[in-house]
Simulated assay, not measured.
Amino acid sequence: MGACRRMLYEFEPVNERYAREILSWSYGKPCSSHDEPAEGLLAVLLAPENNYHAILKDGELVGFFCAGPDARVPGGNYDGDALDIGLGLRPDLVGQGLGLGVVKAILRFARERFSPAAFRLTVATSNRRAIRVYERAGFEWECLFEGEGGAEFAQMVREAEG
């Protein structure tokens, strides 16, 4: 008899309640670049074509992710067939050791839903904590680029399988 695996995280399309909660989050320094004004972003989070999903644990919102063009940062090179992933963990949960498990759950879900050949994500090089998590999840540095406002970003990729 096989072992039963309990799903740690569940995914649902972002609804208005989740979107408003996500837009209320504030990361502070050094991640204040993630704190953007909510104007116009509510519609972006709710648009089905943007593939925003709430990440839930025991029915509680712990983060979100998006897949596809909305996960891209202007200035990057997004050629190729990798699925772009963007994500955010609820600010009070950052630094509590949840990142790797959340990233692995996102990759599992996205692999089943989108069947990509590879995953790509874009992260500010100043976000060292996130970069360490992505490296532990099997992502490798692909390139660096300067985004709008002069911030430096890294694009990281990994194969979808594995």
Results as ranks from 00 to 15, higher is better:
Met156Asp: 03
Ala137Glu: 08
Phe119Cys: 08
Ser115Leu: 05
Gln155Ser: 06
Ala105Glu: 12
Gly149Asp: 07
Arg128Ile: 13
Phe145Gly: 06
Gly150Gln: 12
Ala117Asp: 12
Trp141Thr: 00
Ala105Pro: 10
Cys143Trp: 00
Phe114Leu: 10
Pro116Leu: 14
Arg111Met: 04
Gly149Gln: 10
Arg111Phe: 04
Ala137Gln: 01
Phe114Ser: 03
Glu142Met: 04
Arg129Met: 05
Gly138Tyr: 01
Trp141Val: 08
Glu112Phe: 05
Arg129Leu: 11
Arg132Asn: 15
Thr122Pro: 01
Glu112Ala: 13
Arg129Asn: 10
Cys143Phe: 10
Arg111Pro: 00
Thr125Arg: 14
Ala154Val: 12
Gly150Arg: 13
Ser115Trp: 05
Ala124Gln: 12
Asn127Tyr: 08
Arg111Gln: 11
Glu135Met: 03
Arg120Val: 10
Lys104Gly: 06
Leu144Trp: 00
Ala117His: 07
Ala117Tyr: 01
Val103Asp: 00
Val133Tyr: 01
Ala160Asp: 07
Ala118Gln: 06
Phe114His: 04
Gly147Asp: 04
Ala130Val: 09
Glu159Lys: 11
Phe109Ile: 12
Asn127Arg: 05
Val103Tyr: 02
Thr125Gly: 01
Leu121Arg: 07
Met156Gln: 03
Glu140Lys: 01
Arg132Phe: 08
Phe119Glu: 11
Ser115Phe: 08
Ala160Tyr: 07
Arg113Lys: 15
Asn127Glu: 12
Val133Ile: 03
Glu112Thr: 03
Glu112Val: 05
Gly147Ala: 14
Glu146Leu: 15
Ala110Leu: 04
Leu107Asp: 01
Phe153Pro: 08
Gly138His: 00
Phe119Asp: 11
Arg108Asn: 08
Glu146Thr: 14
Ala130Asn: 08
Ser126Ile: 13
Ala124Phe: 02
Arg111Ile: 02
Glu159Trp: 02
Glu148Gly: 15
Glu152Phe: 14
Ala117Trp: 01
Phe109Met: 11
Leu107Glu: 11
Val123Thr: 10
Tyr134Lys: 05
Leu144Arg: 14
Tyr134Ser: 03
Asn127Asp: 02
Val103Lys: 02
Met156Pro: 02
Glu152Pro: 05
Arg113Phe: 08
Ala118Leu: 04
Gln155Trp: 07
Pro116Arg: 14
Gln155Val: 15
Phe153Ala: 03
Phe153Thr: 04
Arg132Asp: 15
Phe109Asp: 13
Ala110Gln: 07
Pro116Ile: 14
Ser115Cys: 11
Asn127Met: 05
Val123His: 09
Phe109Tyr: 15
Lys104Ala: 07
Ile131Asp: 06
Phe109Val: 08
Gly147Thr: 10
Phe114Pro: 11
Phe119Arg: 07
Leu107Phe: 06
Ile131Val: 11
Glu146Ala: 14
Phe109Cys: 08
Phe139Ala: 00
Glu135Ser: 05
Arg113Tyr: 08
Gly149Lys: 15
Ala105Asn: 07
Arg136Tyr: 00
Lys104Leu: 10
Ser126Trp: 13
Gly150Pro: 13
Phe139His: 04
Phe145Asn: 11
Ala118Pro: 03
Gln155Lys: 12
Phe109Pro: 09
Tyr134Thr: 03
